[in-house]
Design a protein around this nucleic acid. Structure first.
Length: 214
DNA sequence: CTCCCGATAT
DNA sequence: ATATCAGGAG
């Protein structure tokens, strides 16, 4: 895919979703980190339902470690993988208090050391909370990038991230990341992609195949 | 690679 | 009934 084609993709999703943004409700870097950790294999909508009450009850790292693990588990029970997530949150909060005075570190290298925080979560935090350009590759970004041939089918998420960083200007990384998510979540969906009304159909092999079969 | 896992859409 | 959802760890 050449520069002109990439530019066309970026401009098109920019027109479709000009104000794409983080849909996880949060007030500060700490809440954002907890919300992203909770969002694994779960919709943003479900996370927001849970955090509405959760962030009212737990304000600081001290609050999360003040309760028994079982209580925190029950408070996030409606989200999947709740045992792992509850354990990770308490461990993460202990580390924040021990090493970082209860604050979320701004460096990617330190973020990924936290339990339950991988490369994707760290990228979301640095870009949304600390204005550091980053492209977090989640399920939507991976699927859309591969369908639009911004990456290859066999690429790992890390390879997808590298290819996107190479093809997209650095100052557009974060906004493009959000637009790819919106494009994937609301248009180029996993189950019912809107190929019939897709302005990028000419660039999409998947879409071409899919349209043939009907 | 497998496991963790409830809510929602299809 | 099955697929999918802002993944990470062992």
């Amino acid at each position: 895919m050449n520069r002109t084609q990439v530019r066309h993709v970026l401009d098109t999703i920019g027109t479709m979703f000009p104000d794409a943004h983080c849909e996880l409700r949060h007030e500060n870097p700490f809440e954002l980190t907890i919300a992203v950790l909770l969002s694994a294999q779960c919709t943003d909508e479900t996370v927001n339902k849970v955090t509405a009450d959760l962030f009212h009850k737990y304000k600081k790292p001290e609050d999360y470690i003040a309760v028994p693990l079982e209580e925190l588990e029950m408070d996030i029970r409606r989200i999947g993988l709740f045992r792992n997530k509850a354990k990770n949150i308490q461990q993460l909060c202990r580390i924040l208090l021990e090493r970082y005075n209860g604050e979320i570190p701004r460096e990617h290298e330190r973020l990924v050391e936290l339990p339950g925080v991988g490369r994707k979560t760290a990228n979301v935090v640095v870009s949304n909370a600390f204005d550091e350009p980053a492209i977090a590759v989640d399920t939507h970004v991976e699927r859309v990038s591969k369908r639009l041939a911004l990456a290859n089918w066999k690429d790992s998420v890390l390879e997808v991230e590298r290819k996107l960083m190479k093809q997209v200007p650095r100052e557009e990384w974060t906004l493009t990341h959000h637009r790819l998510i919106f494009f994937g979540r609301y248009h180029c969906k996993a189950q019912n992609p809107q190929c019939e009304i897709c302005p990028l159909l000419p660039m999409c092999r998947e879409g071409q195949k899919r349209m043939k079969k009907r």
